[in-house]
Write a protein that binds this DNA or RNA. Sequence first.
DNA 1: AGCTCTCTGGCGTAGCAGCA
DNA 2: TGCTGCTACGCCAGAGAGCT
Length: 372
Amino acid sequence: MSLAPGSVRDSIVSYLSMIKTDASVKDIQEAVRLSIGGVSPSSVRSYLNLNTPEIFVRVSRGRYRLRDGDSERDGRQITGQPVIEIGKSKLYHSDCFEWLAQQRDCSIHAVVTDPPYGLIEYTKKEQTKLQSGKGGIWRIPPAFDGHQRAPLPRFTVLGDEDRKALYRFFKKLGALVNRVVVPGGNIVVASNPLLSHLVASAMCEAGLERRGSIVRLVQTMRGGDRPKNAHEEFSEVSVLPRSMWEPWVVFRKPLEGRVQDNLRKWKTGGFRRPSDERPFGDVIKSSPTPKREKKIAEHPSLKPQAFLRQLVRGVLPLGEGVVLDPFAGSGSTLAAANALGYESIGVELDQRYVDIARNAMPELSSIKIDPI
DNA sequence: AGCTCTCTGGCGTAGCAGCA
DNA sequence: TGCTGCTACGCCAGAGAGCT
């Protein structure tokens, strides 16, 4: 009998995580048999043994349990003190899902974040390859004009299962955020034209209201190409539209009463106008992230301060409250909030980006940007 | 971006040695 | 004697790289 790769592993892990204690090899074998059918007993024994101590702990002869979560293993914290505190900004080194699960209801007023898309691209393995500049699924755009370009994630490598995983990822995020954010709070999530519909439907299913998109007008390197192997024959064709914008999907936690009630009680329920005369608009002219900012914070998807500050300023209608970035990266959103005098919290899983954020946050927030 | 080809490494399985 | 620990091995999905 041929099993799908990983099914024995998933079955063992699922059983041990369910019983939350140790079990005998015999019990584990029986659980695997009930779960996925007849499996060679030696496969189960072998799998347990080969993955001890990474995944399993051998409690005694013939007895195994699941190793405790990552947070215990690599020193990351779920709650506790922030690892970086600059001005009114705090950065926690943690898994944001674990971190959000520990937070009080209604303790955040807005969320601005650029989550990891593709997921594959942001796994530890692919990140290591990206940092080493060799291998991996990050695509290096051609240097046709003599300029070296930064690696881009290849969203097209996502298959059906990856898209389902992405949907689950955003639904889980939406549910956690929905509890932690106050009624009327804005949640703005960076996306791209190929995946924004998935983000929107998952977050809405989690209970958030979709409130349109904010368009970051920026020339990207995605799409626009002529048909492969027929460039000359179809020189007038672009297979996929060249992306000249980036959608930031806007959600709102359902209001409690009227907008004015929310504004009085929670300080949320709308966007802050750039000026008395101008409403907050859904198109923000932008440009690629300036070199000097990339030099300060070497993160593959760093967004420019000029753009982030307009966005972060807008999400707190009265300029009061706490802005959260659960995928803080090198802390650029926190830097923008700090420059505006807003209170902000970031959560970042990767120690390397936390290390970068330590210097990047004060440096990015001290950059002078011309008033809007 | 997307296709194709090569080849690595993860995974499942078989089977033997040794322990309880 | 039965169960567990451990090693070797083969398969194949998918990573990596090159090309258009």
